[in-house]
């Protein structure tokens, strides 16, 4: 793979937020999440193909990838809902089931539909009651912004409301690690904003948060670190800024000329070529050399040189179409 940013997240570990004092049973030495050479196949399809990943206590990490990149399988493996074919998954140094039983994990699953014939208050109270040290139910409802829905039935809510209830369910046990699989999929702009505020408030209290998304902007705005997954492999990780830099310098674009696009990919610095309408877009590691070579070909019409966006970074790193951008 082209560029690999292995960002060190020691900075997060040294921050005073780390683990909460009232969780003495969490081994402070073990990271919140560890994947070691994890492979998961479904028939002929290799959904997760040798993933290695470590998430420290108190970190907020985004798992970014297109639909079908392997995000949900990774989440299932992480929660112990699935077992890896090879490799090892550990939460707080133990098998996932073990950490789940000890109440260290809360999760919001993607494919879940509302539980029928139960009120929001009943549901959150019940789930909170399963955990050894839950937060007060009122607090969970408040954090997720569903206090006024407490007496409503879960199966009679709008999609966005139901989504927030599922967030309250994930938080109710006050777990050290919260896993959110595509948490904003059904939310409108306002609800999404409220959701991320609540998530950050929770993360600030020293909790570890892992969320998956196929929206670049969400990953960039709300995670300490972005892990890009593509075709079951981790292709890059780092902050949004690091990924932008790593993904190759700049984009040179110009109008298609009579000389055509023949041979352009062989110009100095050029990594990839794309034609959109009558514009040629060259991704390049050395824009100066590329522009000079273009000038020699007399191919410069309406030239533009711009730094790569996170979109471009994603494109370069996954070597395929960028995920949706909102």
């Amino acid at each position: 793979m082209k560029h690999m940013t292995r960002m060190t997240y020691m900075t997060h570990m040294t921050q005073p937020t780390a683990t909460r004092a009232r969780d003495p049973e969490i081994p402070a030495a073990a990271p919140a999440v560890t994947f070691t050479g994890v492979v998961k196949r479904f028939g002929d399809v290799t959904a997760v193909d040798g993933v290695g990943l470590e998430i420290a206590h108190g970190e907020t990490v985004a798992l970014l990838g297109r639909n079908g990149a392997g995000k949900s399988t990774t989440v299932s493996l992480l929660l112990g809902l699935d077992e890896p074919d090879t490799g090892r998954v550990a939460l707080f140094g133990n098998a996932p089931e073990n950490s789940v039983r000890r109440g260290l994990v809360g999760a919001m699953l993607q494919e879940a539909r509302p539980v029928p014939r139960i009120t929001v208050g009943e549901l959150v109270t019940f789930v909170a009651g399963r955990y050894p040290a839950p937060m007060p139910v009122e607090r969970a409802l408040d954090l997720a912004g569903v206090t006024e829905l407490a007496d409503r039935r879960v199966d009679r809510l709008s999609g966005g409301q139901a989504q927030r209830v599922r967030f309250a369910v994930a938080l109710a046990g006050d777990p050290a690690l919260v896993v959110l699989d595509e948490p904003t999929a059904a939310l409108d702009v306002e609800a999404r904003h409220a959701f991320w505020q609540a998530m950050r408030a929770y993360a600030r209290r020293g909790h570890t948060v892992l969320f998956s998304t196929h929206y670049l902007e969400e990953a960039d705005a709300h995670a300490d670190r972005i892990v890009i997954i593509d075709r079951g492999r981790i292709v890059a990780e780092g902050t949004g800024e690091e990924l932008r830099q790593a993904a190759c310098g700049s984009l040179v674009s110009f109008d298609v000329t009579a000389t055509g696009t023949e041979g352009l990919t062989r110009l100095p610095g050029v990594v990839s070529l794309e034609v959109r309408g009558n514009r040629v877009r060259l991704r390049t590691e050395d824009s100066d050399a590329t522009v000079l070579a273009l000038a020699e070909r007399d191919a410069i019409r309406g030239l533009q040189v711009s730094p790569a966006s996170l979109d471009d970074a994603f494109l370069a790193l996954t070597g395929s179409a960028a995920p949706e951008v909102r």
Binding site: L79, V100, V105, L109, V115, R130
Partner: peptide, 9 residues
């Protein structure tokens, strides 16, 4: 719902 219960203690 059964899946959600599996990720509670």
């Amino acid at each position: 719902w059964l899946r959600q219960l599996r990720i509670t203690p």
